[in-house]
Design a protein around this nucleic acid. Structure first.
Lengths: 120, 120
DNA sequence: CTCATTACTTACATTTTTTATAGTACCTTA
DNA sequence: TAAGGTACTATAAAAAATGTAAGTAATGAG
């Protein structure tokens, strides 16, 4: 997140994978440390920057900004700025972003099941 | 991939997230650069190390090893070594690993749809 | 004896991601 | 005049992930 080096092997590999594997392409989009959790909260409706920050107690403002920007860039979330003082900015999922809901829900169920199996 | 620093903020954050969000927990497990693609190939049946390497032309042996080890550690794949020379090692999905199939398939579909929307 | 095969391992370098800390602009209220 | 709230940005550093290149063990074929 920040500038990526478009001459690196890593970049080339990601491109190649994303080209031929839609699942890798998807993983690149929703693959940050906090992206899935941000989306999970947004499934319930729009939230302000500060609300998200409170919901994710350990996230730094910088990371929250970066992840939101990335999600916005990929058209997963929509950002709306209200010209008020103090500023108000709301984030909400787009249609395609909302379509992740069932997938993430299943991933949640799988995760819970896996955890239950492996913890004991 | 190698030693993680258990005193880092990053480690603490991952732990905390994984504790309360099964989707983050799941993402940690299947979240390497190549993990999803490896699983995708294994959905069709067991494969040898060398076969996987050929299917993933750009992966290095080191990365393939690391990702397989991680998947094995999390009981997503099962590793079987045949005491032959030259050695033969086969990888196959476990039951819980196989349960990822429908989820990854949906993620693929989502990815393809998203790509179609955003490329034009 | 030498070479080929297979599935790795190791040491090291580079790139990417995440965290830490300190600002900024704007207006409102006290 | 000063403080406060909101949503950021800039810069640096730490940590994690990935890549590069070389080497290993065992054995059978030639």
């Amino acid at each position: 997140m920040s500038k990526i080096k478009e001459t690196s092997t890593n970049f080339a590999n990601k491109q190649a994978l994303a080209d031929e594997c839609p699942e890798a392409y998807a993983a690149n989009i929703i693959g940050g440390q906090w992206a899935l959790v941000i989306c999970s909260w947004l499934f319930n409706g729009k939230l302000r920057f500060g609300e998200l920050r409170k919901l994710l107690p350990n996230i730094t403002e910088r990371m929250l900004t970066l992840q939101l920007r990335k999600l916005e860039e990929h058209k997963i979330v929509k950002r709306t700025v209200y010209a008020e003082v103090p500023p108000r900015v709301e984030y909400e999922l787009t249609a395609i972003g909302y379509e992740l809901k069932p997938i993430i829900k299943q991933l949640e169920e799988w995760g819970a099941k896996h955890k239950a199996q492996n913890i004991k």
